[in-house]
Simulated assay, not measured.
Amino acid sequence: MVLSKTKSSFYRRLLIASLIERGFNTIPKIMSEIEIPRRTAQDTISALEELDIECIFIGAPKNGYYEIRSWGAIDKNWVMNNTIKLMETLSY
């Protein structure tokens, strides 16, 4: 199955939000879990606000972490229940 850029971007954002919620809440943890470049992880986290997912950084740059404060209109339960499907669809 070939994903459009729009769909793959949307799924990547949902996957990153799910990982943050599951405790993979730093750039290095996200990078090691799904093997993506640092810049892609950073850009994807920044883009979460476009989906009204409120993601904040807590702490200092060296030892801080990300936290999802609000999922906006996104169904968090669906995302959390379909994380594996998102990873498989994105080939992670």
Rank of each mutant, 00 (worst) to 15 (best):
residue 64 G to M: 03
residue 49 E to K: 11
residue 86 L to S: 00
residue 8 S to C: 00
residue 82 N to I: 00
residue 3 L to P: 05
residue 11 Y to T: 02
residue 86 L to W: 07
residue 19 L to P: 10
residue 61 P to L: 12
residue 57 F to K: 13
residue 55 C to V: 06
residue 33 E to K: 03
residue 38 R to A: 06
residue 13 R to F: 11
residue 40 T to V: 12
residue 53 I to N: 00
residue 87 M to L: 00
residue 62 K to S: 08
residue 3 L to N: 15
residue 47 A to D: 13
residue 20 I to P: 00
residue 35 E to R: 04
residue 28 P to Q: 04
residue 59 G to W: 09
residue 17 A to H: 04
residue 76 K to W: 09
residue 5 K to T: 15
residue 20 I to F: 08
residue 2 V to A: 06
residue 89 T to Q: 04
residue 32 S to N: 10
residue 25 N to G: 12
residue 89 T to R: 12
residue 71 W to E: 00
residue 64 G to C: 10
residue 92 Y to K: 14
residue 91 S to W: 01
residue 60 A to N: 14
residue 92 Y to H: 06
residue 57 F to P: 04
residue 77 N to L: 08
residue 14 L to T: 08
residue 48 L to S: 09
residue 29 K to V: 10
residue 90 L to N: 03
residue 17 A to E: 12
residue 41 A to R: 13
residue 68 I to Y: 12
residue 33 E to G: 02
residue 24 F to P: 08
residue 91 S to M: 14
residue 61 P to N: 01
residue 1 M to W: 03
residue 58 I to R: 03
residue 16 I to R: 08
residue 69 R to G: 04
residue 72 G to P: 05
residue 21 E to W: 11
residue 34 I to R: 12
residue 3 L to V: 00
residue 77 N to G: 14
residue 50 E to G: 13
residue 68 I to F: 04
residue 31 M to T: 05
residue 67 E to A: 09
residue 90 L to I: 07
residue 35 E to L: 12
residue 33 E to C: 09
residue 12 R to H: 07
residue 74 I to F: 04
residue 46 S to Q: 01
residue 16 I to N: 12
residue 32 S to I: 02
residue 18 S to E: 00
residue 9 S to F: 11
residue 5 K to I: 15
residue 45 I to D: 09
residue 9 S to G: 05
residue 20 I to R: 00
residue 15 L to G: 13
residue 63 N to Y: 10
residue 58 I to W: 13
residue 80 M to N: 09
residue 90 L to M: 10
residue 34 I to S: 06
residue 42 Q to K: 14
residue 10 F to I: 14
residue 18 S to D: 02
residue 49 E to S: 03
residue 28 P to A: 05
residue 40 T to D: 13
residue 74 I to N: 15
residue 68 I to E: 02
residue 75 D to N: 01
residue 42 Q to C: 10
residue 76 K to H: 03
residue 7 K to G: 12
residue 31 M to S: 01
residue 70 S to F: 01
residue 29 K to N: 03
residue 77 N to Q: 12
residue 13 R to L: 10
residue 62 K to E: 05
residue 46 S to T: 02
residue 59 G to S: 02
residue 85 K to Y: 03
residue 28 P to V: 09
residue 44 T to I: 00
residue 4 S to H: 05
residue 33 E to T: 08
residue 55 C to W: 00
residue 15 L to R: 15
residue 68 I to C: 10
residue 14 L to N: 07
residue 47 A to H: 07
residue 41 A to G: 00
residue 76 K to V: 03
residue 29 K to M: 13
residue 12 R to T: 11
residue 87 M to A: 09
residue 57 F to D: 15
residue 72 G to Q: 09
residue 1 M to L: 05
residue 47 A to V: 11
residue 80 M to K: 08
residue 9 S to W: 09
residue 13 R to D: 02
residue 50 E to N: 07
residue 62 K to P: 01
residue 11 Y to S: 04
residue 11 Y to D: 05
residue 74 I to A: 10
residue 77 N to W: 14
residue 52 D to Q: 10
residue 75 D to S: 02
